[in-house]
Computed example of a mutant assay.
Amino acid sequence: MGIIILRFGELHAGNLKVHFIDVKQGDAILIQYEGENYLIDSGKNLSSNKLINYVDSVGVTTLNACLITHPDFDHYGEFEDLIESGLFNIEKFIRNKNISTNVSYIRLTNLLQTENILVDSVDHENDLNWSMTTDILSPNYDNGFSGMNNNSIVIKMSLGEIDFLLTGDSVEDNNQYLLDTYDLDAEVLKVSHHGGLNGTSETFAAEVSPIVSVISSGNNSYGHPSQTVIGLLQDVGSLIYSTADDWNTWWINGGNGSDDISLDDDILVETDGENIWVNDELVWSSFAIDEEYAGNAFLNVSPNPFKNSVAIQYSVKQSGNVKIDMYDLRGRLVKRLLNEHKNTGSHEVEWSAEGMRSGIYFCRFVHGNKEEVRKIVLIK
């Protein structure tokens, strides 16, 4: 009989590694997979050379691509020092088609020319051709959005069952375009605009429904991260990680103390395509589901997301025992809704989530030796 199990994989060198580097109020993401290294954004040019030292410390000698999501200084400011350090062979730079007149950006552009580093300008129609599946979702310049943030390069990156949504500083207009155009469901979210209020709406959080959310921010005067955004991510059950240095910095910027939030400075997210580790701790394992289904039943859950209760509708084409169980994000059984003989026909059972926390749950339906699973989101 097919059953739901958790595949507890092991950390190994072949995992996709995504390093969210603490560069204070800025973004810097190092991606490593199959011997290749990609650096998305750099943060500002900190006197501590944090980015350079970090990338060097994990054994990187070649950067197959450096990508600037948009020309704001807290996303490109350290690239000049990184190039001039001479520690890394940089194969190419990737940027969007927005040009900044900032002196530091012009200086970086001139340095790339001097060093004969290839520069590609991209939008949603281009491919990155990286060693894992990557799709550029934006910018789409046909939208005519103004402002640097609304033209951020947004990437959806996938390995096996695990998707990453890397949002740069994408804000309201571009986020609505993304919602209208793409399937944004992802297990790992780089929270847009350092957790700013204009980077994540209730609809956006629900559509992505991330298992892991990473906020890259430091001490600032912008109110990043927004406590509202933190609440929206908690409402969909996401585990929240921040590059903030300490709780004092987090509280000053609008955060709050919670068991759902980890302040870890540098954050390493790894996956083998089925499991997710954060800083070497296993936080998620995909359900192993018998996908071969003979057509003896049909399962639907509605509404999804839901607030108080959800209707689970199913059809049985051959009478027999039916079992319906609810599991939480970690694969723990939280409620057995049904375990009895059912005759041929359509049936419905309701799950009242009173007393349950907001978050991601799984409805498991078993009929005979076949099963189906549906992911559902509880928002209170």
Rank of each mutant, 00 (worst) to 15 (best):
V236N: 06
D266M: 04
N256M: 10
I252P: 01
A288K: 13
P225Q: 09
D246K: 00
Y241F: 15
S242C: 14
E291W: 00
L232H: 06
D259N: 10
I261Q: 03
I276S: 05
S226Y: 11
N253F: 01
Y241G: 08
D290Y: 00
E281H: 09
E270G: 02
Q234M: 12
N275M: 06
D246L: 00
G231Q: 12
S258D: 13
S285M: 03
G255P: 05
D259T: 08
I261D: 04
N253D: 08
S286I: 05
S286W: 03
V229L: 04
L232R: 14
S286E: 10
A288R: 12
G257M: 11
D235N: 15
S238C: 14
I276P: 08
I289R: 12
T249I: 14
L263Q: 10
I276M: 09
E281L: 09
S286K: 13
N279C: 08
D266F: 02
W250K: 05
G273T: 03
G254M: 01
N248L: 06
W284Y: 15
W251R: 15
H224E: 11
Y241R: 09
T271L: 02
D245F: 03
V283W: 04
W251A: 15
D265Y: 04
L268Q: 09
S226T: 10
W277Y: 12
